[in-house]
Amino acid sequence: MSAAIVFAGVQAGYGARQVLDGVDASFASGKVTGIVGPNGAGKTTLMRAALGLMPIDSGAVTVLDRPLGAWSREGLAQTIAYLPQGGDAHWPVEARELVALGRLPHRARFAPSRAVDLAAVDEALARCDAVKFAARRMNELSAGERARVLFARALATGAKVLLADEPAAYLDPAHQLRLMDLLREEAARGTAVAVTLHDLALASRHCDEIVVLDGGRVVAQGAPDVALRDAVLAEVFAIAAERAPSGAVVALRRL
């Protein structure tokens, strides 16, 4: 297993408020890593730290065996694709145009899209099953369709690492499952996929690896049945799980 992103003792925060309190974790290439934890546990901050969007107070982030600070802005943008939480299009651009933004890291300044960029856009649209509404404007699409287009935008970059923050929020169950399939497909191509999720059942069934965050620390990292074992669920979420014979979480109740 090769780790695409490694966090070693990472501390980071916003001003006086420390959010990450010495995080040790890793996202492996070719796997879907689910990041779970209560609200405020530091899930989004962990992703922002990996992207260099916020300064790290201490510790180190390594991206593909190179320290984060050694990456150029363009190099990092080509290597990590990021799907922020609650992302949406601020202008009603055509879906295809939005997906093409994912190619920005590969385009030289002032250069138009090349054939290879357009091919990547078309492929990403096809993988997300979004071809039939590619020419429509974002405000004409349903929430589920918009989510697919935004996801295609992240795929179009063709990055070796994909960080998706709460992509399943606001999606109906069918779309959530479709999304998890897309994440799995992307991981099968060798991409390191990390995704924050609130739905523990979804995380437990569709992720290869789970990182449980609480209060800015990693409480557990490992295979879903290990990381989401009863003791962890009780300690972090104050809940108990009903499980399938495989050990996967199917339902939850409060302790």
């Binding site: 969007l53 802005r73 943008a77 990590i80 299009a89 202008w91 920005l104 890291p105 385009r107």
Partner: peptide, 20 residues
């Protein structure tokens, strides 16, 4: 201009696309 296009996705996404 390019940076403004990327901002269509919000500031964090624009930064992650290499836009200063």
């Amino acid at each position: 201009a390019r940076g403004l296009d990327a901002l269509t996705l919000g500031e964090d996404a624009a930064e992650s696309l290499g836009v200063a």
